[in-house]
Amino acid sequence: MELLSIDKLTKTFGGIGAVKNFSFSADSNRITALIGPNGAGKTTVFNLISRIIKADSGSIIYNNINLLNQKPHRLMQLGISRTFQNVVLFDNMPLIDNIMIGGHIKCHPGIIKYLFSFSLSWKEDKILREKSEYFLEFAGLKDKINSSIAELAFGQQRLAEIARALVSEPDFILLDEPAAGLNPKETEQLGELLCKIKALQKTILIVEHDMNLVMNISDKIVVMNFGEFLAEGKPADILANKDVISAYLGDDELC
């Protein structure tokens, strides 16, 4: 069943077509990978989905809602959560606070009451804190709960961002190159984490360059090149697809 359906999505940056008439879909409770050579437009697609940039035309339908009409901060409420290519943790607060922010929308909004809340937000905070600690453990960062961001290794920061993305209990998670900069062991840990997330009945859309990881965990792979749709299918099929191979390696024979 399709959870996210993108149809003829187009975005041009000053004459350069970053995404051209791009269509694909992500099925619920599956891991879909979006791959393609550098500059293919993958991160642009992500930024279009998360409404950080405005699309020129097309539609992005999630659960029968067209995301192109939504403001960026609304996505969380719809159950969509994401991580970023450059890890964006807030280093002006400890790790646990960072994770708790992920659950921001779960506690009811209403800014003014926080001026007068003496114990109100304490109760909510306690629940949020427990949940955050749970997901930190889930991501494998149990003993880092009270650290500052500076104390975390890069791989751990990536896991922390994923933990943060889970706290709001989203249905749909966008992961932007989570394996970038990780060593093989860390990548393996990441892969296990992603499978655990899938087991929680969540849907994942991942942009990734690490082919091993992609082949191992994806249910479906969508390939992009030069902003356009190239191919889609199961991992084994994509691996054998001639167009995909020539997009990555070029048509000419090497030496």
Binding site: I52, H73, L75, M76, F84, I101, H104
Partner: peptide, 10 residues
């Protein structure tokens, strides 16, 4: 931008 992605109405 990250804050908005986390659901905060900046």
């Amino acid at each position: 931008i990250a804050a908005a992605a986390l659901g905060i109405n900046v």
